[in-house]
Nucleic acid binder design. Structure first.
Lengths: 344, 344
DNA sequence: CTGAAAGCGCTTACAG
DNA sequence: CTGAAAGCGCTTACAG
């Protein structure tokens, strides 16, 4: 199927000038007279000219395109994040080529090589959980392609990265709960083998210890990251017969599972038991009662990562090894009761 | 900042052959001997050659890239949809350039013109709610760029489109509820000015009428599409003192608002009142109890739309004006009680 | 103020 | 089996 695109040459022919004149006029080059520019602009509109950016990119050796690799767009956190990256990129006149790795190392490698082939000006990568081979990243480094990791990073490669300060945020949130009069806090944890799981759990433990509250191992229930894991975790807790005042769930899906399991027993949230999760505002408000969260704002992360990358591309931030840990705030919603001492 | 990319010429120089030989060897052209191919492949790996796809695209006049325009990626429905488009595109070796219109006509136009400038092989567009000017779409048509609308379409332009069959799905779902013994069904509607709002409401009314159930205007509460609209709608309903058995909420956010407002009154879902929403499985299961839905599967829509577009690009489906209405199924989850008559 | 030349990195006929 | 020529649509020095 033949397309109908007009070229600068076509315009030049029509106007009986050289195509260089057209090219210059379109870029508002001082060489060209105002009158000629006007004639050319008119012709461009009349003829429906759309500049071939591919050709422009090839000749400029710059694509004004950023490549993104996310593990999974079905995770709404990443959707918000990508949305925010697109916002920031668009502001700076960059396009976005989006790829998904499905948490598979092979896909990730493929995606990155493809993006390099497309000669993106820079890469924004959240590494898959599987990734162990650093070859493709070393290749990007060798090719001097600016790359910024977000959310998850390979630390020993000296690329810039942006992440949440999970441990500190967790400690801070638990401190607030304790200050609010709570002492019995359980944790539905992820796997200690993942950085998310271990960081969050470490924050939980440290907060308790620093407040002189003994850690009860039976209140740390390692499970996973899905709804069913939250259900199972609560069932396990329920079976012990000793309930905490608060459950800290490792993410919102686990929190949702906890909601379901709690409801089944007839207990009421927040009156009989409170829940705290990690997540972000929009999802938290879908819950009823609204889920209290250690609030990890994906838009903030997206904006920071994209700006960092664009700065590196434009050579503003010279030596590409910046580490940014985003502060996370605690959002106390209706899934946890405020005790009297707090209200006053 | 200078990149370090190797070109075919570099490889040719190293091997003392012509760059055409290299080009042919890389495309596995029969002209080239097996021995030479092997030497070249080796050199490619040793030297870290990554083919410049931009140059390839320019010379082939084909980019193997699809352009997407969605109104908003923060709507998880679109996130799932884009994810599925990427899946399908990747299978067929297409890249994705993703743009977001924020429901703004000007952004949409800009995005499309940019994508055409990037010479995407085809466009996948969900038009913004604002869009009234068809100029940019007529331009795409004139340029013979394959375009497929999804979810929302401009019908009188003869482009292909894929949408959900909202009206029929609604009727079917309500029929099932009625067959299950329910007759008192209220509708928290969107705006009748939007196609989504009017289609769904029309399906609701037709189902009641065809079952001989009178329509009670006070049970059709027009509001909006957000959580707060669901809260307000239930408060209005509650104030009348006459509750239905089931509420049909125009989407999952409105359903979530209804959950909250219902809980506040002390009523229990599903025992005192049941809820049915439009949405998709993953979000529905976050609710507790899980939300019954008229199940609009975004992945299905994404896959169908992408395949349709790719077929048109490859000239398989010749005359680009296919309309596909996706059948929607009813997913009966725990937010609606199954009455005895159904269970048996 | 206008234009001819050379180049970006690839590919596709064509000739030998 | 190998390579020289022309082209994709743009841009950037350079010369007049």
């Amino acid at each position: 199927m033949k397309r109908n695109h007009i070229t600068q040459q076509d315009i030049a022919d029509k106007l009986k000038v050289s195509r260089i004149t057209v090219s210059k006029a379109l870029r508002n080059h001082p060489d060209i007279s105002a009158g000629m520019k006007e004639r050319i602009i008119k012709a461009v509109e009349r003829m429906g000219y759309s500049p071939n950016l591919i050709a422009k990119q090839l000749s400029l050796q710059k694509t004004f395109t950023l490549g993104i690799v996310v593990p999974d767009l079905e995770n709404c956190f990443f959707a918000y994040l990508v949305d925010s990256i697109i916002d920031t990129a668009t502001e700076h006149n960059y396009h976005i080529i989006l790829t998904v790795s499905r948490e598979k190392e092979a896909f990730e490698r493929n995606n990155i090589m493809n993006l390099i082939g497309m000669r993106v000006d820079g890469l924004l990568v959240c590494v898959s959980q599987q990734t162990s081979d650093q070859k493709v990243f070393k290749y990007a480094r060798k090719m001097k392609i600016p790359l910024v990791f977000f959310d998850r990073a390979i630390k020993d490669l000296n690329f810039s990265y942006v992440a949440f300060n999970d441990k500190i945020a967790t400690k801070e949130a638990i401190n607030q709960l304790i200050a609010g009069g709570y002492t019995k806090i359980a944790h539905f944890a992820g796997f200690s083998s993942t950085s998310i799981g271990s960081e969050r759990c470490a924050g939980y433990k440290e907060a308790l210890i620093s407040n002189g509250i003994p850690i009860r191992e039976e209140w740390i229930i390692e499970g996973g990251y899905e709804i069913d894991d939250g259900i199972r975790a609560f069932e396990k807790l329920w079976a012990t017969g000793k309930l905490p005042e608060i459950i800290l769930a490792v993410n919102d899906r686990v929190a949702s599972g906890a909601y379901k399991a709690i409801r089944k027993t007839g207990l009421k949230i927040p009156h009989d038991i409170g829940i705290l999760g990690y997540g972000f505002s929009d999802t938290a408000h879908l819950f009823s009662p609204t889920l209290s969260i250690i609030n990890q704002d994906p838009r903030k992360m997206g904006r920071i990562a994209a700006n960092l990358l664009i700065d590196e591309i434009q050579g503003i931030s010279q030596n590409s090894h910046t580490e940014i840990l985003i502060e996370v705030d605690f959002q106390w919603n209706t899934s946890i009761l405020k005790k009297q001492s707090i209200l006053s």
